Amino acid sequence: MKKNKEIEVHSEETTRNINGTTYPVTELYIGKKQIGSVLTYGQKEFQSFADDENLGTSKSMNTAIETIIRRWNLHEQ
């Protein structure tokens, strides 16, 4: 049976200007590699991206981050 390996994910906060409006963005990294980002549109609207692929909208930051990590797990292993 394959043993699960723990990985450390860290985040950095930044902003992105889209059509004249500035939005907060949380970028997710494993080591020095960026695995995705979450753009915060509103109080309950979080857009997930990985490698310029739109992964959809979530109602919470935690769900958006989980979406990115799941996608990374499927494609990197």
Rank of each mutant, 00 (worst) to 15 (best):
M1D: 03
K2F: 13
K2C: 14
K2E: 13
N4V: 10
N4A: 11
N4E: 12
K5T: 07
I7V: 15
I7D: 15
E8H: 14
V9G: 08
H10F: 09
H10L: 09
H10I: 09
S11T: 04
S11L: 03
E13H: 05
E13S: 08
E13A: 08
T14M: 07
T14N: 04
T14L: 08
T15K: 01
R16D: 08
N17Q: 08
N17G: 03
I18D: 14
I18E: 15
N19P: 10
G20F: 10
T21N: 10
T21R: 09
T21E: 09
T22N: 07
T22I: 10
T22H: 04
Y23I: 12
Y23E: 11
P24W: 04
P24K: 03
V25M: 04
V25N: 02
T26M: 05
T26L: 08
E27Q: 09
E27N: 07
L28E: 01
L28P: 00
Y29L: 03
Y29C: 02
I30E: 09
I30T: 11
G31V: 05
G31I: 07
G31W: 02
K32P: 01
K32T: 05
K32Y: 03
K33P: 03
K33T: 07
Q34W: 01
Q34F: 01
I35V: 02
I35T: 01
I35G: 00
G36V: 00
G36E: 00
G36M: 00
S37H: 05
S37G: 10
V38Q: 00
L39H: 13
L39G: 14
T40C: 11
Y41S: 09
G42E: 11
G42D: 13
Q43M: 12
K44E: 15
K44D: 15
K44L: 15
K44N: 14
K44C: 13
E45H: 14
E45W: 12
F46R: 06
F46Y: 12
Q47F: 11
Q47A: 15
Q47K: 14
Q47N: 15
F49H: 07
A50F: 02
D51A: 01
D52G: 08
E53H: 11
E53T: 10
N54M: 11
N54Q: 12
L55D: 01
G56R: 11
G56C: 12
G56W: 09
G56Y: 08
T57I: 12
T57Y: 11
T57P: 06
S58W: 02
S58H: 04
K59T: 06
K59A: 08
S60W: 04
N62T: 15
N62S: 15
T63N: 15
T63C: 14
A64D: 04
A64I: 07
A64L: 07
A64Q: 06
A64Y: 03
I65K: 10
I65H: 05
E66G: 10
T67N: 06
T67I: 05
T67D: 05
T67P: 02
T67Q: 04
T67H: 03
T67S: 07
T67Y: 01
I69D: 08
I69Y: 09
I69H: 09
I69M: 11
R71W: 03
W72C: 10
W72Q: 09
L74K: 08
E76A: 12
Q77F: 13
